[in-house]
Design a protein around this nucleic acid. Sequence first.
DNA 1: TCTCTAGGTTGACAGATTTCGAAACAGGGT
DNA 2: ACCCTGTTTCGAAATCTGTCAACCTAGAGA
Lengths: 123, 123
Amino acid sequence: MSKQTLPVVDLQAVGCCAPLAVRPMDAEQAAVVAPMFKALGDPVRLRLMSMIASVPEMCVCDLTPAFDLSGPTISHHLKVLREAGLVDSERRGTWVWYRVRPEAFRQLGALLDLPGTATPAGA
Amino acid sequence: MSKQTLPVVDLQAVGCCAPLAVRPMDAEQAAVVAPMFKALGDPVRLRLMSMIASVPEMCVCDLTPAFDLSGPTISHHLKVLREAGLVDSERRGTWVWYRVRPEAFRQLGALLDLPGTATPAGA
DNA sequence: TCTCTAGGTTGACAGATTTCGAAACAGGGT
DNA sequence: ACCCTGTTTCGAAATCTGTCAACCTAGAGA
């Protein structure tokens, strides 16, 4: 699965993350970050992500039945999220558990900060 | 262009935006938000977005030469950003100007908030 | 140990979407 | 009328989505 960190995103190396609204992104940075947004750009994956993100960890066996999709399809979507660096998976016994990678999540959030807009309380 | 607001996203109607990490998204919400992430999921569009977001407004005539792509292609990408509700365009005389829609930007940012993680100053 | 069963992933494939450029078109200035 | 900016249309090539079949791993039972 991914006990040893995959050669995937390498968030640190990007020198990342002035908010989009502050400094334009260079091509290299964009090439690293775009796949993360792309991974979230599918309704199924977005829901998978939100289900995983809203708990400490989530079993695939609870993810799959939430959709009208076959097991392999869910597995493929999870792979996309994994390869984008957004989640991490670990097999424990019979089941496979997914959890978010907070660094990646944080990086995307930071990118979307709108300076001078301290996320209004009521939003 | 888009003087009258396009029947596009309708951010308010979604009842949107508990952070992903707080509550799982229902299918309907995901269907509305996913296209926005999808729009940012291409390196070219991500850079376009960042170029637009980092200034009050941006002329297409300054956007196009920043890429090794034809005019029509850039125009296509801008259309995707527009239809996702992320930017707005306006023709003034000869040139067309693009600017971000802060509400959309804010919505995405809110979705990616990681509660208990007040965006560290240095990040 | 050997087998059986359940949970997940991988590989291969058809059908749908994207991406991009050439050419044609529309808006606006001169 | 002519030129310049940007968009649209259309078609070709590449990529994505979802399924079935096959496979691998782990636990249960004989």
